[in-house]
Each structure stands twice: as structure tokens, then as C-alpha cells.
Amino acid sequence: MCEKRPMLELKGVGKTFNRGSVNEKVALKDFDLTVEEGEFLTVIGGNGAGKSTFMNVVCGTYPVDEGKIFLGGHDVTRLPEYRRAKYLGRVFQDPMMGTSPDMEIQENLALAYRRGKVRSLMPGIRKAEKEFFRTQLARLGLGLEERMTVKAGLLSGGQRQSLTLLMATLKKPDLLLLDEHTAALDPKTAAKVLAFTEEIAAENKLTTVMVTHNMADAIRCGNRLIMMQEGRIIYDVSGEEKKSLTVEDLLERFRASAGELSDRMILS
């Protein structure tokens, strides 16, 4: 066994919204989590369990109240969102959010290819890169390699999520963050995007964290699963035990912890 290093570490992270008011909401409480290199972690939990807050504090959308966050071994607790991007590849729930609609597909890829680099007065996209982008786009099997100069805004939701996924992984990130990235897609497209996600994660041995509402996906994908509730991890399972999980098991866990099940989870 080779030595694995932690790619994401949260140590004693706490986040409370509207502190001191009637609307006070503890979103994360003394939250500890370590994700090892190459691990594919799925995160489930009901509404208000703290999944989104967890994602957002990792990205740096808002600062934490207490605790520390490490990405790829670097302390990023105080880094603003754009500087953490160096370590992160992200795909959002909303297909609109991951691409720049008025820019060409290849320009979007070129932007992503420079993630974490200082943006200079050199050309925004080079000839040699275009060929590389073409081969990468061809892998999606969507024919986008023939439409590289088309504006990203003209793509469908599924195409955009696939493109965003490609952008997130074009430059290998220390951590790939997927925030319910198939939730806004129709089932067929969602399955396709998810399949590509697994393929690309496996091929590049990406450390991945995927938040999902779909329990079946959460069980099938990845090699570790955590369930969150009220800002804590209430269930953490990996390896053989995870493989043998069923949706019923997870539902049972929810009930046991008296968790509120969201309609979306039951329906999915």
C-alpha cells in the first residue's frame, strides 16, 4: 500500500447563520472530515442538514466561524474563493452557473485551463490548446468538438454540465466538488453525466466529493458515503460495507436519527 495523503481536511469547523437572532441556524457544528487522495465520497442528508454549507465553506463562498480547512495539505481557511480555485474543480447544481454563456465553448475551456494561474497579457487561447480541447470534447460524445466556437449559452443543460465537468477536470484539481450536479437534469441525461463523472474521476484518480439527493446514486458511486444531519456526520461508511448498502438501509438510518426526510429524497 502506498502512503495516501489527505486531500481535504476539515478540523472542528463551525458555521452559524444569523448568530444571536431568532433565526439563528447552526449549519455546521464541530465538523471533522478527512478525505484521502483518490477517495470518491458521496454526501447525503435531508434539507438543512448542512450539505450546502459544507460545500460552500470548502469553496470559500463564506468564511467559517471556527476550525480549519486544508486542501491538498494547504491551509485555505482564510483564502478567498478565487484563490482556493487553484485546488478545486467545481460543478454546480444549476447548469447556468458553471459556464460563461456569451463566451465560446473553447474560450470557456481556455479560462478553465488557466485556473490558479496569474492571468497575463498573453493570448487567452492558443492554437495548440484548441487541438487539445478538441480531443477532450470528443470524449464527451456530444459532438461539441465540432462546435467549439459556439457560445456556451446555446447548449442544453446536460451539455453544459458535461462541459462544466470537463472544465473542472481539465487541469487536474486536488479536489473535485460536485454539488448535486445532476439534480437539474432529466433522468436519462443525468445518468449520462454521472457515468462520465465516474469515468473521468477513475481515469485521473481524482479525489471527489459529490453531494446528491439520490440515495441510489450515492450508494452506487464512489467508495465512501457520509450522511449528514444538523451540521454533523451521523453515518460514515466505506469499502465492503458501503457496497452492500441498500436504499432501505439508508432510510432506516434516517428514521433512526429522527431526521426529516425531504420529499425529493423519498421520490428519487
Binding site: Y82, G98, R119
Partner: peptide, 13 residues
């Protein structure tokens, strides 16, 4: 065009 995406790509908005 898309400040969210820009931040995610490491752009200082």
C-alpha cells in the same frame, strides 16, 4: 458574464 463561474475558475472578480 458569470461572476460565479469566474470565481470558481480562480478569477479575481
Amino acid at each position: 458574464n458569470n461572476p460565479n463561474m469566474s470565481r470558481a475558475q480562480g478569477i479575481n472578480v
